[in-house]
Amino acid sequence: MTPAVEIRDLHKSFGDLHVLKGIDLDVQQGEAVVLLGSSGSGKSTLLRCINFMEEPNDGRIRINGDLIGAERGGKMVYRENELCKLRTRVGMVFQHFNLFPHMTVLENVMEGQVVVLGRSKAEARDKALAQLARVGLEEKAPEYPSRLSGGQKQRVAIARALAMDPEVMLFDEVTSALDPELVGEVLKTMRQLAEEGMTMVCVTHEIGFAYHVANKVCFLQDGQILEQGEPHKVLKTPETSRVRDFLDGHSLFKLPD
């Protein structure tokens, strides 16, 4: 079966800083992959390369078999149009929600469907309401984002991304900006998505989520994948001392025996 995301020898630099040093990663359809690693390991950059929020300097990315960009003289070149189209196929949810404050919740979820996908308003509205129902926020449709709690904002952001019917969803530390008591509702929504078979790539510090929900965990270190595999293997019996140290650092979390 074609992987939903296929990454080969991906490199990314910011100026002199070499952040990603040759990443190979496959995400199968319906799989939930969690990227772990300390800050500066390159996990967020890797995630942001998958929907080309950052353009990689080298390497190939295929989404459901389609190679993104065109090769010219050994280098990949990307057209703005192609990338915009790709981003409708790969949804992204951010740490700080980034809801559009001048639009209601419903309009937030309709905006991309109408303006980018060209759906009719009626269709977009039905779809938006359905996605809001999916994250349990149907009744907030006419509100402005400023009236929602952080957890509700983040669920609206998830609905906004889902409304585009993406093939893959990317989650970039989506619970890091939330008050502790609001983290649960967002994780629950993500877990439900994973169970429904959504292909997901998540950067998170919630090791419990990784353990219970992910099909695969990748540990990044210095722009490379140090270990990857099933969560109970990587998280319970890590091969390298680096991963062990990292997990020990998260002493608040106790993995079940």
């Binding site: 929020m53 703005e80 149009n81 790709l86 951010f94 980034n98 809801l99 559009f100 906004r160």
Partner: peptide, 18 residues
């Protein structure tokens, strides 16, 4: 305007002018 607004719009496939 917060940079996140550009990012969110970009992430749902909007071009810069849109």
């Amino acid at each position: 305007i917060d940079k996140g607004q550009w990012e969110a719009a970009k992430a749902i496939g909007m071009t810069r002018p849109v």
